[in-house]
Nucleic acid binder design. Structure first.
Lengths: 217, 217
DNA sequence: TCTTTTATTTAGTCCTACCTAAAAATATAT
DNA sequence: ATATATTTTTAGGTAGGACTAAATAAAAGA
């Protein structure tokens, strides 16, 4: 049985391991979890002892199959609870993160699966992230980052990479939501900002914003 | 902010303090929480330090107003989650306890109150226990224990005092559920068993069972 | 009342998960 | 290639929350 803290480490490694298949560094984990590198080393040793991660001193860490499944099931719970909060309890997408961080650690197989059914087996959370199934698998829809598109093309906003309250509030303020049709009009080379059109309005978004928005073509 | 462990102690004192208004003993708490008396003493000191309990060495412990409110809000969450599990997620009343024990510690005011609304502001949990409101208050309906009734009288099963899985499974097996009309037929002096009638069937229940069933007249 | 039993508290440990400071390994730069 | 900087690990320590064993207070019995 994994502790709350162990689950948080596994989740961090899971997320960090996604982009680039190689081992995750101690410092990267420390930064993600907001803890010190020495604490990370301690915990990694414990997780290695439990066969949840592969660990070679000074060479970083990666999840074993068992560790990956454990992490995926935590992520599954997190995202299902987010859907519940938004769809059933009137939370807005910028309010769900902290509560879901707590709910994701509740241990009950029946609870997760009944919740899944109650919500109608959703495939994505309110930020467009895919929800792993009972076995930890999901199908990644290949959405494209705005910065990688060509001017003149359009798509449906389907994934918001940054789920921080601050960023989501920015999107709310600018009336941008998942499912919106967005047309990329122009790239400004000076500051890498992008002009987009949605709901018959044009707005300019910074590179930092564009980086976090992905469209389905 | 209270920790999970502190909340469990407050809850135990809250429940133990209900019957008989005097101070709760260290041993009683230890038994309820399934821990050792010495651990209880440690924790009580901490709670007294935080002004959540009144404590005099060797004289037992009682809740302060702040402690009682904190405990009541944990109980409120516990019972609301039980209603959710039974009404929305197809849990039976004997399956909810362990999960609710976890869910009761989730910290989010909005979550509790939205859940309350989502469930239609229920007043009682699946075992007939009253659900405290935002301020920790509830109205105790004065249901009567079967052992205190007279033969020939009847009422509606409205409170099951023992919420253990074993006892609830016994009730299921004998087709007894909250809301059933029960008529008390006879008291057997030899072993204090009781003959009752419900749904046109007569069954004999032991004193131990009868002790845990209360009816609304 | 005095003694025995029971309840409670204290003293000293342990484990988890964190920390700081120092040491060791790896990576980078000249 | 060697010196410097960065990353990672080790060593040692802290706080929360549990434990055992021993000491002390309160309650019960003779």
């Amino acid at each position: 049985m994994t502790t709350l803290s162990e689950e948080n480490y596994l989740k961090a490694i899971y997320h960090l391991g996604k982009q680039g298949e190689k081992a995750v560094s101690t410092n990267a984990i420390a930064e993600k979890i907001e803890t010190k590198a020495s604490s990370v080393t301690d915990m990694i040793k414990k997780l290695a002892e439990k066969n949840l991660v592969n660990y070679v001193k000074y060479q970083g860490v990666s999840l074993t199959n068992e560790g990956r499944l454990t992490a995926a099931l935590v992520v599954r719970k997190h995202r299902l609870w987010e859907v519940f909060l938004v769809k059933k309890l009137n939370f807005s997408w910028d309010e769900v993160h902290d509560v879901a961080e707590q709910l994701e650690h509740i241990k009950s197989l029946k609870l997760v699966n009944e919740l899944d059914a109650f919500l109608g087996f959703p495939t994505h959370d309110p930020h467009g992230d895919p929800i792993p199934d009972k076995d930890g698998n999901y199908t990644q829809t290949k959405s494209v980052n705005i910065l990688e598109m060509e001017a003149g093309h359009e798509g449906v906003l389907s994934l918001v990479k940054d789920s921080s309250e601050m960023f989501l509030k920015y999107l709310n303020k600018n009336n941008l939501a998942l499912g919106d049709v967005i047309k990329v009009l122009d790239f400004e080379p000076f500051d890498n900002s992008v002009t987009i059109q949605t709901k018959n309005k044009q707005i300019i978004i910074s590179q930092q914003v564009a980086k976090n928005l992905c469209l389905n073509l």
